[in-house]
């Protein structure tokens, strides 16, 4: 396989005394859609700006499309397109003018695709940017990025201002980009979006990558939720290794099962005579909660004591 599209190792970035990135690792293989997940302020945008050569890493090694993002910025930027999280446009340019300008500065865009994307995103290109809502400004940047022939798309929370219909359009566009063999780095705090689109996920917290891998790999590390109705007494299941939070109600049981114990637990369930069985794979939400759960607990604790 060719070298990864994005390869960051041990990246530190300070703003004054504040450590925004703390030994961050991030790898995106060519041709993949990579999710970059983390709450607000965890360092997602800072990482992306380091990748774009807008900020200089204080330590660590960063390679982007095989080059140095700081030194080779211009050459690398011809091969990528970027949508910032908070798009600000020139108030006196129309959306159409801004799209064309950004395209020309990158080195051209596909006229046909530009028109098609404008129609799909239902964007009026004759309006001045100052009259656009946040969502519409985001659409301008999205159209400009997607109408390019960039091999790498860097999208920073691209759907944060879009309505659900437009989110669906966006999802379609990213899947098409993937089919065309483009690489996508998608930062988000919306789990369902990442789950829907991404091959790999990196979870970032306080400037550090705390978990990364394919969704499959990560699911192996966690638990599936299983609900079953059996002929026999389900009580015995509760004490099996790898079973958590078992709740028994007559002949029904619901439980969380460690994925590496799923096989043995399922054998025991079938031995009891299955009448119905529902098993859900772990959601990214659970993965996420595992890493931010303590923050959430602290938050709830504060709220509890305040109340």
């Amino acid at each position: 396989m060719s070298s990864p599209a994005v390869d960051a190792r041990g990246v530190d970035k300070y703003f004054g005394r504040f450590k925004a990135l703390d030994g961050l690792d991030l790898t995106v293989e060519t041709g993949q859609v990579a999710g970059f997940l983390g709450p607000n302020g965890s360092g997602k945008s800072t990482t992306i700006r380091v990748l774009l050569g807008l900020l200089r890493a204080d330590a660590g090694a960063v390679r982007l499309l095989g080059g140095d993002p700081w030194k080779d910025a211009v050459a690398l930027h011809r091969r990528l397109a970027y949508v910032p999280g908070d798009v600000t446009l020139w108030p006196n340019l129309t959306g159409g003018q801004a799209i064309d300008l950004l395209g020309r500065l990158r080195g051209g865009l596909d006229r046909g695709r530009r028109e098609e994307l404008l129609a799909r995103f239902e964007l009026d290109p004759t309006k001045k940017a100052r009259t656009y809502s946040k969502g519409n400004r985001q659409k301008v940047a999205l159209v400009a990025a997607l109408a390019s022939d960039a091999e790498l798309l860097i999208l920073d929370e691209p759907t944060s201002g879009l309505d659900p219909l437009m989110e669906a359009v966006f999802t379609g566009c990213v899947l098409e980009a993937k089919e065309q063999g483009r690489t996508v780095l998608l930062s988000s705090h919306i789990l369902s979006e990442v789950e829907k689109l991404c091959d790999t996920v990196t979870i970032i917290r306080q400037g550090k990558a705390v978990e990364s891998g394919t969704l499959e790999d990560m699911r192996h590390l966690t638990r599936s939720s299983v609900r079953a109705t059996v002929t026999g007494d389900p009580a015995a299941l509760a004490s099996l290794p790898g079973v958590h939070n078992a709740e028994i109600d007559g002949d029904r049981i619901s439980m969380d099962v460690d994925n590496d114990h799923l096989d043995t637990v399922m054998r025991s369930v079938t031995d009891l005579g299955v009448r119905s069985l529902v098993s859900n794979p772990p959601s990214l939400e659970e993965l996420f909660m595992r890493h931010y759960g303590d923050e959430l607990a602290a938050l709830n604790g504060n709220r509890g004591s305040a109340a």
Binding site: L52, L54, A73, H77, W90, L102, R106, G107, A141, I154
Partner: peptide, 12 residues
Amino acid sequence: GRAELVLATAVG
């Protein structure tokens, strides 16, 4: 943030 948008294109 508009400079960011431009500098992320092929403009040095």
